[in-house]
Design a protein around this nucleic acid. Sequence first.
DNA 1: ACAATATATCAAGATATGTTGATATATTGT
DNA 2: ACAATATATCAACATATCTTGATATATTGT
Lengths: 103, 103
Amino acid sequence: MDVFLKTIGAVNDYTRVEILHYINQSGEVCVCDIENSFSMIQSRISRHLKILKDAGFLKVDRRGRWAFYSVIEPIDEFRASILKEINSLEINISLQKKGCNLE
Amino acid sequence: MDVFLKTIGAVNDYTRVEILHYINQSGEVCVCDIENSFSMIQSRISRHLKILKDAGFLKVDRRGRWAFYSVIEPIDEFRASILKEINSLEINISLQKKGCNLE
DNA sequence: ACAATATATCAAGATATGTTGATATATTGT
DNA sequence: ACAATATATCAACATATCTTGATATATTGT
């Protein structure tokens, strides 16, 4: 039950659904990518990414000073059904300006 | 997005997951059934049933002075996947005492 | 019409969750 | 070692959600 509620709780937030949708479309992204794509301060994004990671949706890969987040694969059937539903939502993210200083 | 969050929000609560699980196992139940099965005051149960109904999981059928709640059928794929997951949870409801005064 | 039963709704307080701004940690380049 | 960049964490406040107890509505039987 705890795992279920943690999973559900993670996607019970507008911001996190947007972030999941974005990562699903984009593949692997770093925090600054999201920070630039959404107009949100970094601490806010970092918090939401942690919640999505702890809930079993995302994994992190740290390379250099960057942390790259992506959807865990393969993913279990239940989370997959949630991701599928999120992907079907019409979400227009005002994909903004520049990326981060990745070289 | 609003519909998605309403659906998710409805199952983001321990009590409502228990109630959904119970109705799934029992079929059609009236409010007093739940009231007796769980040890909760009636206003609390009534509120949760309304949330589950508004989120598209339950339907009500009023007969006489009773309101019978049951899972909507057929149900869409996404909600079905949530119900499936809830049914797979180990939930022990201390199915208590008497039923209500149904004759 | 009245009393009893079943359910719904509301206000107030308790608890949980989200946002922000400040600060901590970690990595890279000079 | 130091400065710059990227990310994580924390405290304080704001907002949303849950619980309870009181009250409202609706149906049935006398």
